[in-house]
Amino acid sequence: MSTSTKLVETTNDDNLLLTVYLSVEQRTTNNQQLLMVSREIAIVQEWHNALNTIDKEQLAALVKKDVQIRGPRGREKGVHLLLEWVDRAQVTLTPKRYFKKDSVVVVEELGEWHDPQTGAITGMQTVTSVFTLTDFLISGISRYASLEEALNTAGLNEEHEIKV
Rank of each mutant, 00 (worst) to 15 (best):
T3C: 00
T3D: 00
T3I: 00
T3Q: 00
S4D: 13
L7D: 01
V8N: 00
T10H: 06
T10E: 02
D13N: 13
L16T: 11
L18D: 05
L18G: 00
Y21G: 00
Y21L: 09
L22N: 15
E25L: 01
T28A: 06
T28Y: 13
T29H: 06
N30W: 03
N31Q: 12
Q32V: 15
L34D: 11
M36V: 13
V37D: 13
V37T: 14
S38E: 13
S38R: 10
R39A: 01
I41A: 04
I41N: 05
A42E: 03
I43R: 02
I43A: 06
I43K: 02
V44W: 01
Q45K: 07
Q45R: 08
Q45L: 09
H48P: 07
E57A: 14
L59H: 00
A60Q: 12
A61K: 08
A61R: 10
A61N: 10
L62F: 08
L62V: 06
K64Q: 14
Q68W: 07
Q68E: 13
Q68P: 02
R70W: 01
R73S: 14
G74Q: 07
R75M: 12
K77E: 15
G78P: 08
H80S: 14
L81D: 05
L81S: 08
E84T: 10
W85L: 06
D87P: 03
R88M: 05
A89C: 08
Q90W: 05
Q90T: 06
Q90E: 11
Q90D: 07
Q90A: 04
V91C: 04
T94L: 11
T94F: 10
T94G: 02
P95D: 07
P95M: 08
P95W: 05
R97S: 09
F99L: 05
V104F: 08
V104L: 12
V107S: 08
E108S: 12
E109N: 13
L110Q: 09
L110N: 01
E112I: 01
P116T: 07
Q117S: 13
Q117K: 15
G119R: 00
A120D: 03
I121A: 09
I121G: 02
T122I: 12
M124Y: 06
M124D: 04
Q125V: 06
T126F: 11
V127M: 15
T128V: 12
T128P: 06
S129L: 10
L133Q: 04
F136L: 05
S139K: 08
G140W: 00
G140M: 14
I141W: 04
I141C: 03
I141E: 06
I141A: 05
I141F: 11
S142R: 11
S142P: 07
S142M: 06
R143F: 11
Y144C: 05
A145R: 13
L147H: 05
E148Q: 14
E148K: 14
E149N: 14
A150I: 09
L151Q: 03
N152M: 10
N152W: 04
E159N: 15
E159A: 15
E159P: 01
K163H: 13
V164L: 14
